[in-house]
Nucleic acid binder design. Structure first.
Length: 425
RNA sequence: GGCGUGGUGGCAGAGUGGUUGAAUGCACCGGUCUUGAAAACCGGCGGACCCGAAAGGGUCUCGUGAGUUCGAAUCUCACCCGCGCCGCCA
């Protein structure tokens, strides 16, 4: 969420930000409305507070007179009149505030200056690591390998839950467990992250904090009876860990790693990547989250991204790093790098990580602050997160990139001790 | 799920309708003292918002939201959360 003060003195900045995301046309009327409402809001506050101040004074005089045994009926009558005024003023203030708040909650974050304007076509490849295998060299797609080797069972996943739900079995199931331990171990032991294990069901306040609500309710699985939602990513519970708290400057930066299942309805994506493991409703992921100061957050994005890249290097999977253009950058993010790994069986680059800095956008929503020094005013922290990594697509890439001509799969060295073998199949 | 009980500032803990944003203690910050530190003493010390160039002034905030009242931390109702016991349960 943006600072409401932007509506007073930085409307141009706000409009420019929306333009870079390609949303100005859509949002211009909303921005104008918000600018007007913010003026109304402050006006209503001022008038109401003046009335309240008058009433408070009268109440004290009433108390004073009563103590002296004097009559105060006239003051009481006047005070009551102010009370009626206040009720009306409050109503107006609440209505205006609710509307401006609603608008503010649904405006995407401003991207950093270095983020190019434009949509997906304006994304740029920053660097590539490793050598992708040719996509036409007879490499079987991961679902064929997985089924042939008895490691994934898509028909039964569909039977149990529906399409887009996977059953891993045998060495495939163990691979999931191995990936989890491997990734968490590297991040805790080599990158200094604190390990967390978090709830998969969260409440509305939590989802509002990270930006999924109110705008993206339809993208999530909901438990209506309890007003809870299945998390789309561990970012949600982890970032909200310190919601409504004030940290000491000495505690920053803080970094957390958490494994979780992730649930996505993928509303509106019917027909895309329907085969195999590429786009599913439930997948597993190891997520990194960092809390940083505003001064360091930009640099921390590089650190975070390097940590995610490290995992791909250890898994010996060729990948490329994309700088997303403003229009392709997520709602809450100010700048995002996507990591894409090449899967030669399907001949596609697969997004396996998205590393973002959110500036104070999430922190303001979630009210996560820190104090630079004792006695100083609290400031909002900056939050970052990135997948490191998303399992199902990584498994697809492992099955395809490390596929041998005899149909077996070579296990990357770093993963062998977790899996207990160096070949699958 | 049932019954009971409780939610006050960073923590502990007073306060049951009127100068209470809130005693007191601890913690924290500044100062005096000290070679230095500790102790002692003095002072300060929640957050959000509005007006203002600033100085400063004002409003809100005692789990959340409604209500009673001229006036609510204090009274009423609903909800949320904690704790205890019972029930159920991986």
């Amino acid at each position: 969420m943006h600072d409401i003060r932007l509506l007073r003195d930085q409307m141009d900045h706000l409009r420019e930000g929306m333009r870079r995301r390609g949303k100005l046309e859509e949002l211009a009327p909303v921005l104008n409305r918000a600018e007007f409402l913010e003026k109304e809001r402050r006006d209503a506050i001022r008038v109401a507070e003046e009335a309240q101040a008058r009433r408070n004074k009268l109440s004290q005089e009433v108390a004073q007179r009563r103590r002296n045994g004097e009559n105060a009926d006239d003051l009481v009558a006047e005070s009551r009149k102010i009370g009626d005024e206040l009720t009306a003023l409050e109503e107006k203030r609440a209505a205006v505030e609710a509307e401006v708040q609603q608008i503010l909650m649904e405006l995407p974050n401003l991207t950093l200056d270095e983020v190019p304007a434009g949509g997906e076509e304006a994304n740029t490849i920053l660097r590539t690591w490793g050598t992708p295998r040719a996509g036409d060299s007879g490499i079987a797609p991961h679902w064929e390998v997985g089924e042939r080797l008895g490691m994934i069972d898509l028909p039964r996943g569909a039977k149990i839950s529906g399409s887009g739900f996977i059953v891993y079995r045998g060495a495939g199931a163990k691979l999931v467990r191995a990936l989890m331990n491997f990734m968490i171990d590297v991040h805790t032991e080599e990158h200094g992250y604190e390990e967390l294990w978090v709830p998969l069901l969260v409440n509305r306040a939590t989802l509002t904090g990270t930006g999924q609500l109110p705008k993206f309710e339809d993208d999530m699985y909901a438990i209506a009876d309890d007003d809870l939602f299945l998390i789309p990513t561990a970012e949600v519970p982890v970032t909200n860990l310190y919601r409504d708290e004030i940290l000491d400057a000495g505690e920053l930066p803080r970094s957390f790693v958490a494994f979780s299942a992730c649930f996505r309805r993928e509303a509106g994506s019917a027909g895309k990547d329907t085969r195999g493991l590429l786009r599913v409703h439930e997948f597993d992921k190891v997520e990194l989250v960092r809390y940083a100061t505003p001064e360091s957050s930009r640099d921390e994005l590089e650190v975070l991204t390097a940590h995610a890249e490290k995992m791909l290097q250890l898994l010996e999977l060729p990948y490329r790093v994309l700088r997303l253009a403003a229009g392709d950058t997520g709602f809450s993010s100010a700048m995002t790098y996507d990591l894409e790994v090449f899967a030669p069986g399907v001949g596609k680059w697969l997004e396996v990580s998205s590393c973002s800095v959110f500036t104070d956008f999430q922190a303001r929503r979630a009210n996560i602050r820190y104090r630079t020094a004792p006695g100083e005013k609290p400031r909002f922290v900056h939050t970052l997160n990135g997948s490191a990594l998303a399992f199902s697509r990584i498994i697809a890439a492992l099955f395809e990139h490390h596929q041998q001509s005899d149909g077996t799969i070579t296990v990357p060295a770093a993963l062998r001790r977790y899996l207990g073998r160096d070949t699958l199949g």
